[in-house]
């Protein structure tokens, strides 16, 4: 009995050894820095399913929420760097989040950035019946004395709203207490706020003509409204999109890092996988690995510092 059970355990543990040089010695915990349900969580879980299907590794997803991804970051940082714990979050957590939090408990350099995964479709949205065509119209209205309320769901976006106003010499009533882009979208729809940042769910409303992307918060044109005004046109040289990223604790052995990084970027980019289909539909594919991923996060860190310096009073 004893030998039988031990042999079974050993067989299960060694089954994936044939696939590559590195294979996990047990199930991999995937710590997701988002609330269960919702797009980001779905994406992470689908990636886990795809890796399981393609590579035969066991992934156990769990949601580790709080402090804008900070709790997940601390948890991953404190895990053993053996490839059995990885995390999914947004680059914001490792850039703006590190600078803005009182005591984040982690630093950008505490992680290996395995692969970026997807990007948002951030835009400044208003109802089309307001008559504005772009942000310049809104700024003109504000200059003419109209009070404009501006919804934002993260401190970074609130800073962005403030900076847009500052550069253009107007003051918005910034409403920054919303949780998630869907809440801002609802507020815009219910006319609780005049304009607001929305990261993608505005798509169907914009296609139907009820809503309008007044400006593009991304560094690439928005798919649903490619001609939306760029922030550069209103004197803002920052971008406000979010990038999803897979991380591991720093000090991960090279073979494990390469194998994980390769597995994640492969399933996300491969046609026909569940995660690929989901990301293409709800977000945009945005894959960078290795040094490229690290320098992307470091670039965002520098941008965040510049934004904070530019908005400080």
């Amino acid at each position: 009995m004893k030998t039988l059970l031990s042999a079974a355990a050993a067989a299960i543990l060694s089954v994936s050894a044939a696939y590559a040089d590195w294979a996990p010695s047990g199930p991999i915990k995937l710590q997701i820095g988002f609330k269960a349900g919702g797009g980001a969580d779905t994406m992470a879980r689908l990636i886990a399913e795809d890796i399981q299907a393609e590579y035969g590794w066991t992934l156990l997803p769990e949601n580790v929420t709080g402090a804008g991804g900070g709790v997940m970051a601390r948890s991953v940082k404190d895990s053993a760097a053996d490839g059995l714990t990885i995390g999914v979050g947004i680059t914001d957590t490792f850039a703006y989040g590190v600078l803005a939090a009182r005591d984040p408990g982690y630093a950008t350099s505490d992680f290996e950035y395995l692969s970026t995964l997807a990007g948002t479709q951030m835009g400044i949205v208003a109802k089309s019946d307001r008559g504005w065509k772009n942000m310049s119209d809104v700024i003109a209205a504000a200059k003419a004395g109209e009070e404009i309320s501006f919804g934002a769901m993260t401190p970074r976006l609130a800073d962005g709203s403030y900076y847009i106003g500052k550069v253009n010499g107007v003051e918005f009533n910034i409403v920054s207490s919303y949780k998630g882009g869907k809440a801002v979208l609802n507020a815009v729809n219910a006319s609780d706020v005049d304009i607001g940042w929305v990261a993608g769910p505005q798509k169907s409303g914009v296609s139907a003509g009820d809503l309008l992307n007044l400006a593009n918060g991304e560094d690439k044109p928005l798919r649903v409204s490619p001609d939306a005004q760029t922030l550069a046109e209103i004197g803002v040289d920052f971008f406000f999109g979010a990038t999803f990223v897979a991380i591991a604790p720093a000090g991960l052995p090279d073979d494990a890092r390469l194998a994980l990084s390769d597995a994640i970027s492969t399933v996300v980019q491969k046609d026909g996988t569940k995660s690929n289909a989901f990301i293409s539909k709800a977000l945009t594919i945005k894959v960078m690995t290795g040094d490229e991923a690290r320098s992307y996060v470091e670039g965002e860190l520098a941008d965040a510092e510049a934004l904070l310096n530019a908005t400080v009073e």
Binding site: N173, I174, V175, S177, Y178, A187, D192
Partner: peptide
């Protein structure tokens, strides 16, 4: 959230 938004708006 409603009270904060009302105040800010």
């Amino acid at each position: 959230t409603t009270i904060r938004s009302a105040f800010e708006a």
